[in-house]
């Protein structure tokens, strides 16, 4: 979505030259580690771009996974505004978001730059009212 492919291809292009010239295994690992570094930096910036950021499968209009849909419905019920990223459009993002938060599954919600949880935790925090407070504090919902 808002994740551009330009950077990725640039890096890929540069390193594919190395893959031809150098020992295959070493160059490939270098290629992947550079993509990883790039994505970790990109994600670190992305999660701070907006007070509430969601990584999901599909889009808010068309979620492609029940768990992502659950989180969308919760954020809607809270009346929160958020920014979403579709990991199905970018395999590197999909893998790197997992290592970024050390959390194995998607969706992932970040509030004020901090990883908050996935569908199970969001549902729990929604029920306890903890999520309302957190979203209000982040300034993404109108105070009642």
């Amino acid at each position: 979505m808002s994740v551009g492919y330009t950077g990725r291809f640039l890096v890929g292009g540069l390193h594919s030259t190395n893959i031809v010239r150098e020992n295959g295994v070493r160059s490939f690992s270098r290629y992947y580690s550079s993509v990883k570094d790039e994505y970790q930096k990109k994600i670190a910036d992305q999660v701070k771009e907006f007070p509430c950021v969601l990584y999901m499968k599909g889009t808010p209009e068309r979620p492609m996974c029940g768990f992502s849909n659950t989180v969308i419905r919760i954020l809607e019920a809270e009346g929160a505004t958020f920014k979403s990223h579709n990991v199905l459009e970018d395999d590197d993002l999909r893998e790197n978001i997992k290592s970024f938060s050390n959390w194995p599954t998607i969706p992932q919600v970040y509030i004020k730059g901090e990883f908050v949880g996935g569908a199970d935790i969001m549902m729990n925090m929604y029920k306890t009212g903890e999520l309302s407070k957190m979203l209000e504090d982040a300034g993404v919902v109108e105070k009642q």
Binding site: M64, G66, S68
Partner: peptide, 13 residues
Amino acid sequence: QPSPSCLGGMKNE
């Protein structure tokens, strides 16, 4: 909590 129904995402992965 019951698990949400599938929305077909696996087909696109």
